[in-house]
Amino acid sequence: MKTYVALLHSIVLGEGRRVVMTELREMAERLGYRMPRTLVATGNLVFEASEKPLAEVETELEKVFAATFGRHVDIIARTAEGWLKLADGNPFLAEGEKDPASVHVRVMRLPLVPDAREKLHRYCSRGERVSIVDGDLWVDFGGKASDSKLGGALTTQRLGVGTLRNWNTVKGLRAMVVG
């Protein structure tokens, strides 16, 4: 068995309807995944399953999600080892420890190309910093992410399939996978 982390791009199903984490865990159990557990109510799922390619895990989860909730949502999966590597690669660790809500990572399905960083610089109008580590985009917003023009540029259309998590969530998932 292998431990996986799965991140839903959105838990909003429509007006007034959100994915409830108990429903998400039940969905994972229907796939035969073991010990599904969630971190906060934002679409973070950790579970055990037979070892298989990440693309297969993502496809399985996306198909059963659409069947269960009636809507497609992009889901990004990582192995526990991959998640630990991601967490250990935070280039803005000191800033994240001071203000965990100001440091985010956009976890990507496919690695970002190196020039993506340069294309985002024009949106960094408040001293935001970006770094690509192993294909994922780390951002130090230097304050509230919602106050930054950069947040609006971190779209699937611009960067490809991915989803943002703040440093607190990254650490929380790290703690879940190490047990």
Rank of each mutant, 00 (worst) to 15 (best):
V5W: 09
L7R: 09
L8P: 03
L8S: 04
H9L: 13
G14C: 06
G16E: 03
V20G: 11
E23P: 03
L24V: 02
E26N: 15
M27L: 11
L31Y: 01
L31F: 02
Y33M: 01
Y33Q: 02
Y33T: 00
Y33C: 01
R34V: 10
M35Q: 15
R37H: 12
T38K: 05
L39Y: 15
V40H: 10
T42H: 06
G43V: 10
V46S: 01
V46G: 02
V46R: 00
V46W: 00
A49E: 00
S50P: 13
E56C: 04
E56M: 08
E56H: 06
V57I: 10
T59M: 15
F69L: 02
G70N: 04
H72K: 13
H72P: 10
H72Y: 11
I76T: 10
A77E: 01
R78A: 04
R78H: 11
T79G: 06
E81Q: 14
W83E: 09
L84H: 05
K85S: 14
A87G: 11
D88R: 15
P91R: 01
L93S: 08
L93T: 12
K98T: 12
P100T: 05
H104P: 02
V105E: 03
V105T: 00
V105L: 02
V107Q: 14
M108W: 07
M108D: 02
R109Y: 08
L110S: 15
P111E: 00
L112P: 05
V113R: 15
D115G: 10
A116H: 06
A116M: 08
A116I: 11
R117V: 15
E118I: 08
H121Q: 14
R122H: 14
R122V: 15
Y123E: 04
C124E: 01
V130T: 02
I132K: 04
I132F: 03
V133F: 11
D134F: 04
G135T: 06
D136S: 09
L137P: 00
W138D: 00
V139L: 06
D140S: 02
K144S: 13
K144A: 12
S146E: 12
D147R: 14
D147C: 09
S148P: 10
G151R: 15
L154W: 00
T155G: 01
T155S: 03
T156A: 12
R158H: 13
G160T: 07
V161R: 12
T163F: 07
N168E: 05
T169W: 12
K171Q: 12
L173C: 02
R174Q: 12
M176D: 06
V177A: 00
G179I: 01
G179V: 02
